[in-house]
Simulated assay, not measured.
Amino acid sequence: MMIYDGETDPNVLKQKMLTGEYVIIGERLDRLSGGPKTTSLSEQLQIGDSISFYRDGELVKTCTILAKACTVGTEDETPSTTTAMGNIGGDAPFVYLPDTLFKQIYTTPTLLSYGFDMDASLQPQMEEFLSSYIEKNPSVTYTSTKLLKEQLNSVASMVLVVGSLIGCIMALAGLINFTNMIITNIITRRHEFATMQSIGMTNRQLQRLMVYEGVYYAAGADIIGGVVALLLAVTVLKNVLNSPSMWFFTMNITLVPVLVIGVLYLLLAAVIPLIVLHFFNKGTVVERLRTSE
């Protein structure tokens, strides 16, 4: 947990909590602001107020609020099966209390979760121990930073694969549309090309004309597509990734993919018209002039 109000000195907190006379009020972490996600009930509870604990209707203990804290990532985001996170009472805050008081309140106290830090050099041994332990005790489960990293890496890989597939499909669709446009353009303008060649245009000049047109189309599409993508990134995508459920995503706007795809499209825009001309603009000038527009 992260203390944000009241007593903040760790030594003082430990000493006073050991007396059994104090408790700490906890709130869930607001991923967007980095602070506590307060509720109307938690705002009513102030440092120095008293909280009474009852068991079967009988008063067990009255404690003083020593500090306020909010959960940290490992408490708030790991699966509830390992951290026992739950919304009990709707807007009720968490209450951190000494183990002695915990045993007084509950007849058969059960430890639902236990979080601890581990030296990096000892993590492999602890992972091995915990894996062996849960095999022998199926009712117990655990999570660790290693497992969380593996899960997030898996999610990141899935997003990368799905995003790449969608991007490739859209790029292929755009390339097919561009090719169809060039084919249609050349077929419908065969008579025009034949007329221009009849008054002196060479095949090389015709090829250059179509290459220039293709490059202009591709350059315009690259510029418009890049601007639209940038606008969507700073508006729609930014709002989506700023939602609480997407806290583990970080948006880094980069134009490198746009530049790479743009250059690739420009190269294809220069090659495709030449190929299309070769296959769809056959015949002599006279034969093409006789063809109606």
Rank of each mutant, 00 (worst) to 15 (best):
residue 180 N to V: 06
residue 111 L to Y: 01
residue 92 A to T: 08
residue 285 V to E: 03
residue 95 V to F: 14
residue 88 I to L: 15
residue 33 S to W: 05
residue 126 M to I: 12
residue 5 D to H: 04
residue 27 E to Y: 05
residue 17 M to Q: 07
residue 278 H to S: 08
residue 288 R to M: 11
residue 99 D to S: 04
residue 268 L to K: 04
residue 225 G to H: 05
residue 102 F to D: 09
residue 54 Y to C: 01
residue 70 C to V: 01
residue 151 Q to F: 08
residue 242 N to W: 07
residue 179 T to I: 12
residue 282 K to G: 08
residue 273 P to D: 10
residue 142 Y to W: 12
residue 208 R to K: 12
residue 63 C to P: 00
residue 271 V to D: 07
residue 155 V to D: 09
residue 290 R to Q: 08
residue 141 T to S: 15
residue 105 I to G: 10
residue 36 P to A: 07
residue 90 G to P: 05
residue 176 I to Q: 11
residue 84 A to V: 05
residue 153 N to I: 00
residue 56 D to H: 10
residue 275 I to Q: 11
residue 55 R to K: 14
residue 23 V to A: 14
residue 52 S to L: 08
residue 158 M to P: 00
residue 19 T to P: 03
residue 243 S to Q: 15
residue 141 T to Y: 11
residue 285 V to T: 10
residue 244 P to S: 06
residue 154 S to E: 11
residue 10 P to Q: 09
residue 21 E to Q: 15
residue 97 L to M: 15
residue 29 L to I: 07
residue 45 L to K: 06
residue 56 D to F: 07
residue 102 F to R: 03
residue 128 E to F: 06
residue 124 P to L: 07
residue 66 L to G: 04
residue 240 V to Q: 14
residue 221 A to E: 11
residue 82 T to F: 11
residue 13 L to V: 05
residue 212 Y to S: 09
residue 285 V to L: 02
residue 141 T to R: 09
residue 197 Q to A: 05
residue 133 Y to A: 11
residue 209 L to E: 11
residue 120 A to Q: 06
residue 28 R to Y: 12
residue 158 M to F: 13
residue 217 Y to I: 14
residue 169 I to M: 14
residue 235 T to A: 04
residue 256 V to A: 10
residue 195 T to E: 04
residue 274 L to A: 05
residue 3 I to L: 09
residue 113 S to Q: 02
residue 70 C to K: 10
residue 61 K to A: 11
residue 231 L to W: 15
residue 2 M to G: 00
residue 31 R to Y: 13
residue 256 V to Q: 09
residue 105 I to N: 09
residue 211 V to K: 14
residue 81 T to G: 05
residue 177 N to G: 13
residue 46 Q to L: 13
residue 175 L to D: 06
residue 83 T to K: 02
residue 217 Y to D: 08
residue 24 I to F: 04
residue 268 L to Q: 08
residue 136 K to C: 00
